[in-house]
């Protein structure tokens, strides 16, 4: 089998150029999908029979929560690839993920709270999903803290990669334990996602949002990755060709 395509991903100038080319292919569909889903979610979708218009928070809450978890998975995968194949570009990807992931974890927490207030009557409930998300936020903080506290880039890369992998092994256990803990201490919550079935005009905007947010993350990641590569490769000769 021909592995050149794989090795090309280890080459910073190649990835730098490729990321630049790909960015609009993520950014524009993301913008269109998110705008379309906004219209679909806020205008076209009918109010929910129980939650009225309040349910529309799902169109920003669910995609943020999805991004928070997905970005951690991307980060850990990139960290693992970087650690195993000693691929500098993969480490740069992992480094570019953490900040965005932490942001969307906060957004999912805040939107969850804003949804909780009218539904549960209080902003914060020790709901398993909110709790697990809060712990995820601390995992992101730890990752960024460790990275920031090590001066040497290569060591920072590998140490934080080990942490990301430990975290990804631990995340399912944390999620399970939090759900288990909640099932003992709390009556089942009012807000249930697993209702029989969402009508299509409610579901379609949600799916569009999920895809749109994913593509949006792709675009942001590509831009951040290029900045990260430039910073790391600042003494490489290919930068001269690239910038002049």
């Amino acid at each position: 089998m021909d592995w050149t395509w794989f090795h090309k991903f280890g080459s910073p100038p190649h990835v730098y150029r490729l990321a630049g080319l790909l960015t609009p292919w993520f950014a524009w569909p993301a913008a269109l999908l998110i705008l379309g889903a906004l219209y679909g979610g806020l205008v076209l979708a009918p109010p929910d029979y129980q939650q009225g218009d309040g349910f529309r928070i799902i169109y920003v809450h669910a995609p943020s929560a999805w991004l928070a978890v997905m970005i951690y998975a991307v980060m850990a995968t990139a960290a693992g690839v970087g650690l195993i194949w000693r691929m500098k570009v993969a480490h740069a990807v992992a480094a570019s993920c953490a900040g965005v992931g932490a942001w969307f974890t906060v957004v999912s927490l805040l939107t969850g709270m804003l949804w909780g207030k009218p539904m549960w009557g209080t902003y914060w409930v020790w709901d398993p999903r909110l709790t697990a998300q809060l712990i995820l936020f601390f995992l992101y903080l730890g990752y960024m803290g460790l990275r920031a506290s090590i001066d040497d880039t290569s060591r920072a890369d590998r140490a934080s990669a080990v942490l990301a992998l430990v975290g990804v092994v631990n995340l399912p256990i944390i999620r399970y334990s939090v759900e288990w803990w909640n099932s003992i201490h709390q009556a089942p919550s009012v807000m249930k996602m697993d209702r029989p079935s969402m009508p299509f005009d409610m579901l379609a905007p949600l799916l569009a949002m999920l895809l749109g947010f994913t593509l949006y993350f792709g675009a942001v990641l590509l831009i951040r990755l290029r900045a990260e590569i430039l910073r790391r490769e600042r003494n490489a000769s290919w930068i001269r060709e690239e910038l002049t």
């Binding site: 218009d53 809450h61 804003l114 207030k117």
Partner: peptide, 10 residues
């Protein structure tokens, strides 16, 4: 539908 206080900030 009365949810503006929560929906728009979200």
């Amino acid at each position: 539908g009365g949810y503006a206080m929560f929906l728009w900030p979200a």
